[in-house]
Design a binder for these strands. Structure first.
Lengths: 221, 221
DNA sequence: TTTTTATCGTTATATCTTTCACGATAATCT
DNA sequence: AGATTATCGTGAAAGATATAACGATAAAAA
């Protein structure tokens, strides 16, 4: 395998990465100069050992009796997640969800900029979502090249999802944020993050089921 | 601890539960009568052993040389997730995202019915989202009681999130689907599922960071 | 300056999850 | 009917992650 080196291929475990995201969010909300592993833990709902373990994956180190330098930690996390670099993104599918995303105020904080919205419904072409006019799919290649877009958001009906993914991939997109329940098939070097809301829903319903069962049991018992 | 029994407190591990959701979705898409662990695995991107292990948490059992009965497995999963029972849900926050959710066609498939939408902006009261007219917050208690609502969706601005959560909880809501980045503080018996899109974003950006680093390394090396 | 204390970093232990391995079994083939 | 085969179910091994334990260290107190 050429181009691969054994020295320090430190990969951060997924669970740790997920918690680091929580820490990152927390650090953006607090004012103090230092914070202890224990305080971080309490605020995000884990324990101090876990926090310290997680932070060993970073360069930032804490001081005994004081804790971690908030600004420093925040900055390292921002680098880790590339928050500071603006990433240009296109969105395909100008339905309700697409509109919601274009208008989502949170993206700017994470260096995300939606530069164009596409749809294949001729009636929608030219209409505006926020300040962006909806473009036809045939303009996609041009826009991606022009703005050097790397990420595409898919929020079209499920049955068109794979087709759209194929178009995005063939135009050089390397990251896809998939809001449809479809499982996308893409080359290895393309990264897909699924945002399937129905799945979260199942989690909620399952919880309520469990709860009801428990209540019935304790009544019987 | 009264009301707690030691016999068979079988709890399905979270990773297993997440995969079961994938299997459930798959089973809804296929026509065949039987399916093998291997086919399930290939279709959802895992391996056969994993699938079989996961299915040991269910009552359904497979037949050698044949596989699992699709209909039976589907039904057991539907029961597990409470898909068949319609759950009534209210939504607070009639912004872009709220509208998107009300119009989301996928909910019906999972037995979710949004029965009312609330907002505290007087200008929005009485306007329609789909077929639902936007109600003032003061109607909330009445609606929850009337429809026996157990789940509330919060998609208001971050700063109002906790306040809304408190209102929901005090009106007997037991499950909250939180679309804001706020961390909600609720009693132990209330279950919160966070749907923080900014967090998924970080996953994507982190991936792109990694990728860039790798490319730089391989150029240097 | 010495002692005490809070908090870190890290190694060791425990738990949880996945993978492996293989005997059991129902369907198919000879 | 007996042999063969695909597939299951499960217990054991391996791997990953989380928790616990504790010595080290910087700040604060004595």
């Amino acid at each position: 395998m050429p181009g691969q080196q054994d020295k320090e291929p430190i990969v951060i475990p997924k669970p740790t990465l997920d918690r680091l995201k929580l820490y990152h969010r927390l650090l953006n909300e607090i004012e103090q100069k230092y914070i202890s592993s224990d305080e971080i833990a309490q605020r995000v709902g884990t324990n101090a050992e876990q926090v310290r373990k997680d932070l060993t994956y970073l360069k930032t180190t804490g001081k005994p009796k004081v804790g971690y330098d908030v600004a420093q930690l925040r900055q390292e996390l921002e680098e880790l997640f590339g928050v500071k670099k603006t990433t240009k993104v296109i969105l395909v599918g100008a339905g309700h969800l697409g509109s919601a995303l274009v208008n989502y105020p949170g993206f700017a904080n994470y260096g995300i900029e939606i530069v164009a919205v596409f749809d294949n419904d001729p009636r929608k072409i030219g209409m505006f979502i926020g300040e962006l006019s909806i473009l036809p799919m045939k303009d996609l290649a041009r826009v991606i090249k022009r703005f050097r877009v790397e990420i595409g958001i898919i929020c079209v009906p499920k049955d068109s999802a794979q087709q759209v993914a194929d178009i995005l991939v063939s135009n050089g997109i390397k990251g896809i944020w998939n809001f449809t329940p479809a499982r996308l098939v893409v080359p290895d070097d393309v990264f897909v993050v699924d945002e399937d809301m129905s799945q979260s829903l199942l989690t909620l319903k399952h919880f309520l089921e469990m709860k009801k069962q428990k209540m019935q049991e304790s009544q019987r018992g």
